[in-house]
Design a protein around this nucleic acid. Structure first.
Lengths: 263, 263
DNA sequence: CGCGGAGTTGAACGCATTCAAGTCTTGTGG
DNA sequence: CCACAAGACTTGAATGCGTTCAACTCCGCG
């Protein structure tokens, strides 16, 4: 229930001072109950909301009204920054838990951009990482089988909490139910249930009462084939995770030797 | 083989004059053969490349080396704009066909941003639409079954060509093979083959020799449950598509009546 | 106490995968 | 010109992962 600050959510990107600058422009917080529409698709909005507390999910529905979650957002996510540039979203965002958001008027963003040209790029960066996360969801759902999909998603949620200092690697809050989880993984609730049973039986993790408890982070990462390079975490965080996962961590960034390929 | 220009690729966003401004900063074009690495993962780059001709695909591989395509890029896509802000990509980009790219040095982008503050937001917008496309891929792969997935992807590729004036709705180039297609849809090549056989038998579309031919756009859209709102196309294009698809088109953009929801 | 939502389990079905074989095309070299 | 190899596409058959339908338990709450 504590309000996560901008520099905590995006370490290395924003300083405490900048958090203050942004904070000063924010409108009073808005609170939503669980299972409410937080941002409506196709609705022109004039402010971007920052999720300071609680959990929300983006989704689209098919012709039969069945949901597919496109992303899960955790405290500290700037959830509808795209609306600043695009004006509206193409999908809905609903709350899972009670949430608190702080709206930042588009006009304020524009002003901040003018006074501090680098802020535009910082916000841009946030949306680029979101896009990278989106891409990884395609990989997860497209290539992994049921159990691995779940493990992989759990690992993502956990690591994203960890990177913000919101948890260790032994578990984190995830106030959603099994059906939501299934809709995030592109499987049925029944199957999600069975696969989670396996993960639990194998002593890897268990998920109940809105809490994810990870018994064996290393194996969670293995079973889920999880890599976190796509999260573009600060080097310290990456190293810490590598140590905890018993892996090499994200691959090193090399330098192009010359203009590549050619025919 | 003609080089698509910036204002043609992003109608409504860039003017011909701006195309010239960007063009003047671009480095000489680079050409790649088919099946080459165009952008390498985890490699620091100092320029963003604009795909003027040819087709490339983003992908990640699982532990067994099996690919999952994350996105397919067509002529006119600014393919590694994320590298400007992030410095490197977390995934590889390979060419399908022979391609031509025009590199724009990061330093040039920075200069352009300084001289024309709105350019930063325009490039940002491009990446936000890319992100929306990514999200839609999650929906496609997560919620649709084999045949619908293919139809939906075909519809996307077709509409993206159409929106740039690169084709009608009766077909477009797509110089990839069935295996690539399967890897983009998260199904096996064998299954992709069978489902495409069905689409062909139903007189909806057929895909061969690197060409997608759409016999019945309206039914393609229906079978694929395709909506194109996530592409954020100009209103004229949206209306034209709606007429051709025999549907209502993208939902109208409404205005928030007041600060939503609350508890 | 009874209701409803969430979680769990069983069994039948079916979409998709896997393995395998065969066709067709294209390009290469004898 | 033909033989052959390689790759892409096609098809059949067996297997299996995941869905669907259904029933039942558990728990919180009115």
């Amino acid at each position: 229930m504590g309000e996560i600050l901008l520099h905590q959510a995006y370490p290395g990107l924003f300083t405490p001072v900048e958090t203050g600058i942004f904070f000063a422009r924010q409108l009073p917080p808005l609170r939503f109950g669980a299972r409410q529409r937080v941002v409506r698709a196709n609705e022109q909005v004039s402010q971007a909301v920052y999720l300071t507390d609680g959990y929300v999910g983006r989704y689209r529905t098919d012709q039969l009204g069945r949901r597919q979650f496109l992303a899960l957002q955790i405290p500290g996510d700037f959830i509808d920054l795209p609306s600043y540039t695009l004006g509206h979203l193409d999908h809905d965002i609903d709350s899972f838990s009670t949430v608190t958001v702080r709206p930042l008027p588009h006009a304020a963003i524009r002003q901040l951009q003018e006074n501090h040209p680098e802020y535009g790029n910082k916000l841009w960066r946030i949306t680029l990482i979101d896009a990278a996360v989106q891409r990884y969801w395609v990989f997860r759902i497209g290539r992994l089988m049921g159990r691995a999909r779940l493990a992989n998603l759990f690992a993502e949620i956990l690591v994203r909490h960890f990177a913000r200092g919101l948890s260790g690697v032994d578990g984190c809050p995830l106030p959603i139910n099994q059906t939501d989880l299934a809709e995030a993984c592109g499987i049925t609730p029944v199957h999600a249930n069975r696969m989670m049973g396996e993960l639990r039986a194998e002593g890897i993790c268990d998920f109940a009462h809105g809490q994810l408890r990870v018994r064996h982070f290393e194996r969670l990462v293995q079973v889920g084939q999880f890599e976190w390079d796509y999260l573009y975490l600060p080097p310290e965080t990456d190293r810490a995770l590598a140590a905890l996962a018993g892996t090499a961590g994200s691959p090193p960034i090399t330098h192009a030797r010359h203009e590549t390929g050619q025919l």
